[in-house]
Nucleic acid binder design. Sequence first.
DNA 1: CCCCTATACCTAATTATCTTATGTATTAAT
DNA 2: ATTAATACATAAGATAATTAGGTATAGGGG
Lengths: 114, 114
Amino acid sequence: MYSSELIKGTLKTIILNLLKNGNKMYGYEITQKVKELTSDKIQITEGALYPTLHALEKHGDVITEKVYIGKRVRKYYILTDQGKKTVSERVNELADFMNTMRFLLDLDPAISHV
Amino acid sequence: MYSSELIKGTLKTIILNLLKNGNKMYGYEITQKVKELTSDKIQITEGALYPTLHALEKHGDVITEKVYIGKRVRKYYILTDQGKKTVSERVNELADFMNTMRFLLDLDPAISHV
DNA sequence: CCCCTATACCTAATTATCTTATGTATTAAT
DNA sequence: ATTAATACATAAGATAATTAGGTATAGGGG
C-alpha cells in the first residue's frame, strides 16, 4: 500500500482509463479490478470512489446505466465522447508528469526526457 | 504546467531529494532549481513551499542555518541523518508507485512491473 | 530619485481530495 | 442464523495544495 498522498490526483485518471474502449464498469467492480491489477498496492476506498464517480458524471465525462441483478442494483458507468477526450488528455499528462519526475529525481531514465 | 492535483503528495519528496548528498539549499533556490530542471513544468508556489519546509524541520528531516547576504536573510536547509532515511524511502515509494501506474494505465512498460 | 523586478522570507483563508466512519440493503456460504 | 461479500451512498475530519496577502532588501532603467 502506498501512502495516501501519492494516489491523490490520479484517481480520476485511473477510473477513466478503465472505462476506455467502451468498457462499462460499475463502482465496486472498479475497486476490485484496480486491487487485482496492482496486487493490492492500490485500494480505492468507497468514500473516495463514489464522490469521484458522481463528479465525473456531473462533469459529463460518463453516463450511467442502472441494472438490477435480482433485487440488487448496479450502476454501470460508460464514457461519453467528451470523456474519451478527457481520458486521453489526463493519461498523457500523467505520463508526461511521471517522465518529468523520473528526470527530476534522477531515476532510471529508461523513458527519455526530451 | 501540470494540473495541480498531480504534484500533490510529491512535493516533500522533490525537496528532500534536492537536499541529497549534503547539498544545502534555501527556499527560494529550491523553487528556481525545480523550475529550471523541469523547463517550467513544475513551479513550486511559496504558499506550498514554506509550510512544507517547516513541517520537514518539525519532523526532524532537516535542520536550518541562517545566513545574511547583506541585510537579506537566507535560510538554508540541510538533511539530517533521519532525513536521509526518509528521502530514500520516499523516492523508492514514488518510483514503485510510478511503475504501478505505468502498468495500470497500460503505458510504455519500459520499466518492467514484476 | 523613483519605480519596477527580482530576491527572500512568511501566514491565512479557501478549495480539493482524500480517509475514516457510518448507514442501508441484498446475496451467498458455513 | 450468522458472517462475509456484494453494492450503493453520505458526512465529518484530515491533509495538502492554491490564492491572496504581507514584509523587506537589492539592483537596474528611465
